[in-house]
């Protein structure tokens, strides 16, 4: 009896594992053009835009399936370096992409497909009347920035340096979304985030533009990974991002390279 329970448990585990792995090339193949499925590792800030682009791509390329894994660019780069299987990597910055290029994990040289500007995020109605980067140095304001280790913090520091402003942040957040939520919840008066984040946040916050001369632009490169099992479909998806996806990217606040 006891042995039978153990066997059943072991079997259940094996079946679970097998179904979790699943067939990778599912989907009915269309006679012409690439078919099958690909996995795209994409930076969190691309979540909304790429989800839309992926659905559009599947519609215009019947028999294909695009799966996404969204996370911070550095987490994704680390996952890929540790052997995560995927076909495409879209990073929110160049350094994380370069890590993979140098490790020989890319199939080609990466191409920049979008840019993202920085913006000051404030509460709806801008109650503290913040108009420029210089205003962030005013005393009595609670400012949150990204930590210098993450791209948005690195860029924010560059912009503040260009403006000659020294800001004492109350917190160095781990990612853009945390900066945004601190402002949205009213805990902080202002922060520096990407234009796309302010757009995605909707009603609770608003953006204050940073003068173009002081702004720092984030470049988003995309590449086919060396271990891709379906390079034809990966290539088709990347070229779609550059063409059919351009309008969608613009709608979410990205600018063209």
């Amino acid at each position: 009896m006891r042995a039978r329970v153990v066997t059943a448990l072991l079997l259940a585990g094996i079946v679970g594992l097998a179904s979790a792995c699943g067939p990778s090339g599912s989907g009915s193949a269309s006679p012409s053009g690439p078919s099958g499925a690909i996995t795209v590792f994409a930076a969190s800030s691309l979540n909304a835009a790429f989800t839309t682009i992926g659905a559009d791509f599947e519609k215009s390329h019947p028999g294909t399936m695009v799966r996404f894994s969204f996370a911070g660019s550095s987490s994704l780069a680390a996952q890929i370096q540790e052997g995560a299987l995927g076909d495409v990597f879209a990073s929110a910055d160049q350094p994380n992409m370069q890590k993979l290029v140098q490790a020989g994990l890319t199939a080609e040289s990466p191409m920049v497909f979008a840019r993202n500007d920085l913006e000051i995020v404030v509460a709806k109605g801008n109650p503290k009347h913040i108009a420029s980067l210089a205003d962030l140095a005013r005393s009595g304001l609670v400012i949150v920035l990204c930590a210098p280790a993450v791209p948005c913090g690195h860029y924010a520091a560059q912009a503040l340096q260009k403006a000659g402003v020294s800001v004492k942040p109350a917190s160095q957040e781990a990612d853009v979304k945390s900066v945004l939520s601190k402002v949205a919840l009213g805990e902080a008066d202002a922060g520096i985030v990407y234009v796309t984040d302010v757009k995605a946040a909707g009603q609770s916050v608003e953006g204050v533009a940073i003068a173009p001369a002081l702004n720092v632009v984030a470049e988003y490169p995309i590449v086919i990974l060396k271990d891709s099992q379906n390079r034809a479909l990966a290539r088709a998806f990347i070229s779609y991002v550059h063409t059919g996806g351009r309008e969608t990217l613009a709608r979410y606040g990205f600018t063209n390279p």
Partner: peptide, 23 residues
């Protein structure tokens, strides 16, 4: 509490942020 070295950056937070820049 956010993340600020010396004030609210405890070890787990320091580990998480170091993972971004210096694994």
């Amino acid at each position: 509490a956010g993340n600020f070295p010396g004030r609210t950056q405890t070890m787990p937070l320091a580990v998480y942020l170091a993972l971004e820049s210096n694994p």
